[in-house]
Amino acid sequence: MGIKDKGMRKNFIERMLGPIASMSLVFLLGIALTLIITGMPAFREVGVLKFIFGNEWRPTFDPPYFGIWPLIVASFIVTFGAILFAVPIGVASAIYTAEIASPGVRETIKPVMELLASIPSVVFGFFGIVFISPILQKVLGLPTGLNGLNAAIILGLMAVPTVASITEDAISAVSKDLRNASYALGANKWETIVKTVVPAAKSGIFTAVILGVSRAMGETMTVLMAAGGARGVPSSIFVPMRPMTATIAGEMGEAVIGSTHYHALFAIGFVLFAINVIFNLAAEYVKKGGNK
């Protein structure tokens, strides 16, 4: 009886754990609410469909145009350009590090990856301006090296260590028994990796991909500095463009508080937020299906 009582009674911190844990949800909802409330006047004034699918973003013109389609297209171009090579390369690097490299090599590579993953985005953006841009301009003969490709390259580079590091954790967490069982059945190392380890680490790898995509899509400073900032609907990855994040960061300083422009920037934030949440929910759903 005494033991049971002792086990059941919760101290103050224990009772607070639940409410504290729910703070993440509170912040998430708070962010959503803030964006909706502050963005609403823009949606109302411009019209939701006209706002999202409008082809012109000219907030300072007279009359101003608040169509964010060019910004949405730009965001998707740079994100998918980045992910196209960040995911295969990141996952491959992680598999090599976790499964094939000798313990000595692994102990060196993992920290190196993590150190590189931590390089601030503004430094990557800076690198895009001073290093990648002149090369792109010269090699591809473009009028400017600050364009979607530049941003995609850097975003990809930025996402690789993130994807690799999380993937590696997932792979390392696969039980040794599974591997031994595979070897015992006559599989070699490569077969064990491809048919046993990777499938077992699937949900972790998937998490890595999600985080890679959300990092690329939400990256602000890099695209603000490297993507060029043109306002039109981008015709290809080789032209300057202005993704959603860059628009908010670049124009908030000049937007008069309370103006339609100000509200419109929050509305863009809401669109970004909604895209991200939808993406995460879809990922959760797929992951849940995969684990059955």
Partner: peptide, 20 residues
């Protein structure tokens, strides 16, 4: 799901939230 979504929120959105 909430934590994952929060992790996926673009950094600039935290700026907007902070501002508002």
């Amino acid at each position: 799901i909430g934590i994952n979504s929060l992790a996926g929120v673009p950094s600039i959105v935290f700026g907007l939230f902070g501002l508002a």
